[in-house]
Design a protein around this nucleic acid. Structure first.
Lengths: 148, 148
DNA sequence: TGAAAAAAGATCGCGCGCGATGTAATCGAT
DNA sequence: ATCGATTACATCGCGCGCGATCTTTTTTCA
C-alpha cells in the first residue's frame, strides 16, 4: 500500500496551469513598477501617483470619486495618496461647495508644469521594454478583456 | 499671442497611449487579486502567500533564494511572508546546516494538506473570469514577453 | 417635515513590494 | 591562515490596496 500515487504526489496540473496566468500578471505588474521607478523618481512620483496624475492631466478638476472610478481604486487608497500629492504641491483639494460630501481635486501650477517632464516617460518606457509596439498594443487589448 | 495651443493644452497623445498599457496591467493585476480574495480567504491565504504555496507544492524543501527566483521577489518581501506562513503552521523554516547563510523552507503536513483544498481554486477562477480559455492562454503568453 | 437610507470621503489595520542597510557565514586570493 | 569580497537573509521605512468602520452631508419618502 506504499508509494501509491496519491493526489499529493502529482504535480497537480490544474494548479500549475492556473499558476501561469496569475503568475504572469503578478510578475509583469511588479516588473512594470520597477521599470518605471527610476524615471518616476526623477519626477518625484510613485507609480500609482503617476497614474493619478495621468488622469488629472487629462481632466483637471475632478472629484475623488471620479478619480477612483478612473483608477479603479477607492477612497481608502486615494485619500492618502492625494494628500501626499497635495503635500508635494502638485494638487489642491477642497470640499465641493455644491455638495459638501464631495472633495474636488485639481492640479496646481506645479502639477500642470510637471506634465512637460512626464511627456518623456512613455517613450523611455517603450524603449526600456524593448518589445515591438504592436506586441504591446495586442497585450493591452487582451488585458482589457479582464477589465470587468 | 493668446490661445496658442501649447503642449499644456493638448491631451498629449503619448501620455494617453502609455497610459493604456500600464493602466491595463495595473488594473488587471488589482482586479485579479480581488477576484482571488474570497476563494483564498477560505484557505486562510493572501494572494502572494498562495503564489508562494504554489511554488512549494511543486517542490518542497527550497531555499528562500530559490523561492525568490521563482516569484521574482527578494528576501525583504519573502522573509516576513514566510514567517507568517510559518506562524500559520503551513511551512517550516530552518537554517541549512550545510551553509548557515541559507534558510530552507519546507511544507508542513498542514501545508501539504492544504493543497487538496487549493485544487478547487483554478477552476473557480476560470469560471469567475468568464473568458474563453484560449483567450486566457494567449494573454499569459503575451505577458511572458515582458518577463525580463 | 423628520427620520431612515444612501452617498462621499476619511480613518484604521494588515500585508505586501522594495530600496537601503545590517549581519553573519562563506569564499578567494594572497 | 588571514583579511577583504561576496553571498544569503533579515530588518526597517514608506507607500500602496483594500476590507471594515466611521462621520458628515444629501436624498428619499412616508
Amino acid at each position: 500500500m506504499s508509494k501509491k500515487p496519491t493526489p499529493s504526489d502529482r504535480p497537480v496540473e490544474s494548479l500549475r496551469l492556473d499558476n501561469q496566468l496569475c503568475f504572469a500578471l503578478y510578475g509583469a505588474a511588479n516588473r512594470m513598477t520597477r521599470l518605471y521607478r527610476p524615471m518616476l523618481d526623477a519626477l518625484g512620483l510613485t507609480y500609482p501617483q503617476y497614474l493619478a496624475m495621468l488622469v488629472l492631466w487629462e481632466k483637471s478638476p475632478q472629484t475623488v470619486g471620479a478619480l477612483g472610478d478612473a483608477l479603479d481604486l477607492d477612497s481608502s487608497t486615494l485619500t492618502p495618496l492625494l494628500k501626499r500629492l497635495e503635500a508635494g504641491g502638485l494638487v489642491e483639494r477642497h470640499r465641493d461647495p455644491e455638495d459638501e460630501r464631495r472633495v474636488i481635486v485639481g492640479l496646481s501650477d506645479k502639477g500642470r508644469a510637471l506634465r512637460d517632464q512626464a511627456e518623456a516617460v512613455p517613450e523611455q518606457m517603450i524603449c526600456a521594454l524593448d518589445t515591438p509596439m504592436n506586441e504591446l498594443m495586442a497585450l493591452r487589448e487582451r488585458l482589457k478583456i479582464l477589465a470587468k
